[in-house]
Design a protein around this nucleic acid. Structure first.
Lengths: 217, 217
DNA sequence: CCTACCGATCGGTAGG
DNA sequence: CCTACCGATCGGTAGG
């Protein structure tokens, strides 16, 4: 209830607070965008979600579209970080594929991880002049998938015709688009059960891997 | 440029005209919703696209949400019609799968066929009280896919582990969700080349079928 | 289906 | 980051 903001001890701490508020806005926006869509979410919704008044988000962002961009950037930053960490603990193509599938499901469905769902859902609301920036980072993520799937395909372990000659297996890009499409589309139908935590995502990842990847004989 | 509307010859024709205007609104709305999203499309956009003034769409629909519902219903009606026609010309499980894949790509990407893309993209904008109606029809469509995929799976022709025992192949529902997800997600990345017509969709369908379906030895 | 209009709301800003 | 506010626009309606 203090009417005056307490003076910060150091400029560094004050800067950290400001960054925290910005992060809070990004997180709250991600959730709102994910639930209602970018266009249906008002700046007042966002402000209210973090206890601000309606004009205050514009202290942190110059307009609503920039918040959307920041949500997508945060999602890709976290996504790359989590994926690289997961890949570091896997040593075979099969393990790496499983790790990427499971990690991507977490990125899409974990509590507090609504950023990439927004990227997928509200892409058309992002102004054209910002799209190239996001695509550049997204390409890095897609490349991780490409390498992962190429290894699997070379080993004859991917797709319905994988064990035959390489030409029958199809190209890696098609495989990537199909697999990532199947996984990404879960944002339209998968709902986490309350209380069961990550268990359901494990099961979903298992079923996904078993459908796309040939099992060792 | 006539200021007075020409008198209709019969009530039947007048009713047909009214239905035509309604259809024009649905088609124009589908395209606008698909391009900009339901929330970002204004009633003025819709009216302008068919040469009406801003208040006139409400002569045909009681509110904006009802237009969205009508778009989705029209998509499912056309989708079921086209799919049943395509299935009628196929006699083996492999042919039926190929027919469903190719038809679904047409439903998603053909010029003038933006209805199902709207259903997928703007589902969350549909008021809850209308969702059950749409789901009921969508279930019929999903059931056609289920039967198609079950036949394929029973024949050991679906997925990476399909030729083994049935338990290794996984369940039909997972296969349906993965395959339809992969296909539906193309709405986010596939862009038809101008002038080449349906050729590209044929190629896309071929690659999709080859990825998911085991080819005859 | 048009004209004329309305209340509500929205993104954003000025000044502190 | 708040207060106070603004111009623009939106979905929708009355009356013809």
């Amino acid at each position: 209830m203090t009417q005056t903001r307490p003076r910060e001890k150091t400029p560094g701490v004050e800067g950290a607070d400001e960054a925290n508020r910005r992060q809070a806005l990004i997180r709250a926006s991600a959730r709102l965008f994910r639930d209602k869509g970018f266009e249906a979410t008002t700046v007042r919704d966002i402000a209210g979600a973090v206890g601000m008044r309606s004009g205050s988000p514009f202290y942190h962002f110059s307009n609503k579209q920039d918040i959307l961009k920041a949500v997508m950037e945060e999602g890709l930053r976290q996504g790359l970080e989590r994926t690289e960490a997961a890949l570091g603990m896997a040593s075979t193509p099969q393990q790496r594929f499983r790790a990427m599938v499971r990690t991507h499901y977490g990125i899409l469905h974990d509590e507090g991880s609504e950023f990439i769902a927004v990227l997928l859902y509200d892409w058309r609301s992002l102004p054209d002049e910002h799209k190239a920036d996001i695509v550049a980072v997204k390409d890095r993520y897609d490349r991780l998938w490409h390498v992962c799937l190429k290894d699997l395909m070379d080993a004859g372990l991917l797709g319905a015709n994988s064990e035959r000659d390489p030409s029958a297996a199809g190209d890696v890009k098609t495989a990537r688009l199909m697999i990532m499409g199947a996984i990404n589309f879960t944002v339209t139908w998968y709902k986490q059960q309350a209380g069961r935590g990550a268990m359901d995502l494990d099961a979903l990842a298992d079923r996904t891997v078993r459908f796309f990847m040939r099992e060792a004989p």
